[in-house]
């Protein structure tokens, strides 16, 4: 009998120990540097550039999240309620980036957006621009690159939720006299909200920690906090500052997770 109680713990032990010693402990060591090295936080508060980077990171993530949600919503809707062929095609197109290296996709975005790249050629040919637009190493480049990476994170949770919405609810609303717009706003959208919160939180969290995309596609003014942490460690060996920045980044991540968690549990509409 004792063996049966011990069994699951023996199975769990290797993974738990690995994650404790090679994840929780190292992250804890990094964060503790913020407190063991004196003046880490005061340096952070007193350097306007660092505060600007923190503000930028929050702002960029806050802008990217609704854009990704707005673009992802119709795609998830089509996947959930459209034909089987469309669903398979879109699922493939959404999963492909998931499996493709971040660097490959950033490199591809550089090729597309460069001064004499195909996007600028298209804009010129359509008469939408008179001279090649600067699309790289600025906010445009960062957003175009990042949202492409973020779309799967909104589309997949939204699709998972929409697929389970009984079409009978919409028919009932319509037959009870609701206009299509009313049925959408009052019935369909509230049922989608768990997917919106999950997807939105995933996008926000991922964007907060992005490193490659802002470094390759953004400009100096779009420097994000992950780049700052890397720079403090790799170039200056400022572990205290890196720890303080990491702590703030983690607090932001868990705050978003907490909000999403509360929103999801307080509004459980699943029958």
């Amino acid at each position: 009998m004792r063996g049966r109680r011990l069994g699951p713990w023996l199975l769990l032990a290797p993974a738990l120990l690995a994650l404790f010693f090679a994840f929780a402990l190292p992250v804890g060591m990094l964060l503790s540097r913020a407190f063991t090295e004196p003046g880490s936080f005061s340096t952070l508060w007193q350097t306007p550039v660092y505060l600007q980077v923190l503000g930028n990171t929050l702002l960029i993530s806050a802008v990217a999240t609704p854009v990704a949600l707005l673009l992802g919503f119709p795609v998830a809707h089509a996947m959930a309620h459209g034909g089987a062929r469309l669903r398979r095609l879109m699922l493939f197109l959404v999963l492909l980036p998931f499996w493709t290296s971040l660097l490959v996709r950033s490199f591809a975005t550089i090729i597309l957006l460069q001064r004499r790249g195909p996007v600028n050629a298209l804009l010129l040919n359509l008469g939408l621009a008179e001279a090649p637009l600067p699309l790289l190493h600025n906010l445009t480049g960062l957003m175009l690159g990042a949202i492409q990476l973020l779309l799967p994170f909104v589309i997949l949770p939204l699709y998972a939720v929409m697929r389970r919405i009984d079409p009978g609810f919409m028919r009932a609303a319509l037959s009870l006299g609701a206009s299509p717009a009313q049925a959408f706003w009052r019935v369909y959208l509230p049922l989608c909200l768990p997917g919106v919160t999950t997807g939105g939180a995933l996008v926000f969290i991922s964007m907060l920690g992005y490193f490659v995309t802002p470094a390759l596609l953004g400009g100096p003014r779009q420097t994000m906090v992950a780049q700052l942490i890397q720079e403090q460690v790799a170039q200056f060996g400022q572990w205290g500052l890196a720890g303080a920045l990491s702590l703030l980044l983690l607090v932001a991540v868990f705050l978003i997770l907490g909000i999403a968690w509360r929103a999801a549990s307080s509004r459980s509409v699943t029958p």
Partner: peptide, 21 residues
């Protein structure tokens, strides 16, 4: 939740922590 937590911690933090260790 603990086993899934590396998914939400930004990679730069995990990597920098591992470097220290």
């Amino acid at each position: 939740a603990f086993l899934l937590s590396p998914l939400v911690v930004p990679g730069v933090i995990t990597a920098a922590g591992l470097f220290l260790m």
